[in-house]
Amino acid sequence: MRRPVSYLALLAAVALIYLFMLGPILITAVVSFNRSDRSYFPPRGLSLHWWGAAFTPQWTGAFVFSLELAALSAIATTIAGLPLALAFRSYEFPGKAAIQAMTLGPLVLPSLVTGIALLQFLTLAGLGSWIGLPALLIGHVVICLPFSVRTIAISLASIPVSAELAAASLGASPGAVLREITLPLARSGVGAGMIFAFISSFDDVNLALFVSSPRQTPITVQIMQFLEFGFSPTLAALSILSMLVPLALVALCGRVVGIGGYLQQEQGHA
């Protein structure tokens, strides 16, 4: 089929937009192999020096801390999100609308504001010692919960009600229906919710900025703090490293849980 000129012009424009979307990330990747100590692009000479620098304790500590925080957040978010999604789906009860609104609230409020609110609350409540891992974990569960509840709700909604009725008619008690039918069929939503929570936590800057402690700082905040003093190609290497984690996660688990269908649910945390 011959394409009309206007369509070719559209394709050309889209190609340029793709360049715009992917260019900066590629540039960052290339800069990390720079030999010079400035972030030259194109790089002047190749070196793995900055990658080596990225693997010093200053950075690996924060990196590992971020991984731990993200894993804990993913697990805690799922533990909180699953009963919420189940209750929202199967029951009508007084206060349901209010609890639903409260659950989805963090989705529409800036996480930066959630961060400063949490900081003040903990300080005033005499829980200043929680600043660090506990506060980060709490904050990340708050901001990840809406994703988790929504992805689980979507997978629950796709279960035919009759499958659960059929199980009951075959002699399965309510507990057995949950264990044998509902949860196995909601697995992909739970998995996708966990992956989103992990990535949201791992990539979060806005909330972590306010409730990190000097000894418990995620990699994103560490980079932001370093940026106040200057730039270094190490940061490029670290940026790429921190991008590879979610990428690997999605590549590994994405197929298993069919993450694609849930991607539409994610919202901004810039």
Binding site: M21, L22, I25, T28, I199, F202, D203, V205, T220, I223, M224, S239, I240, S242, M243, P246, L247, V250, L263, E266, H269, A270
Partner: peptide, 8 residues
Amino acid sequence: PLLASVIV
């Protein structure tokens, strides 16, 4: 790009 932190 959604998978990359906004810093990257």
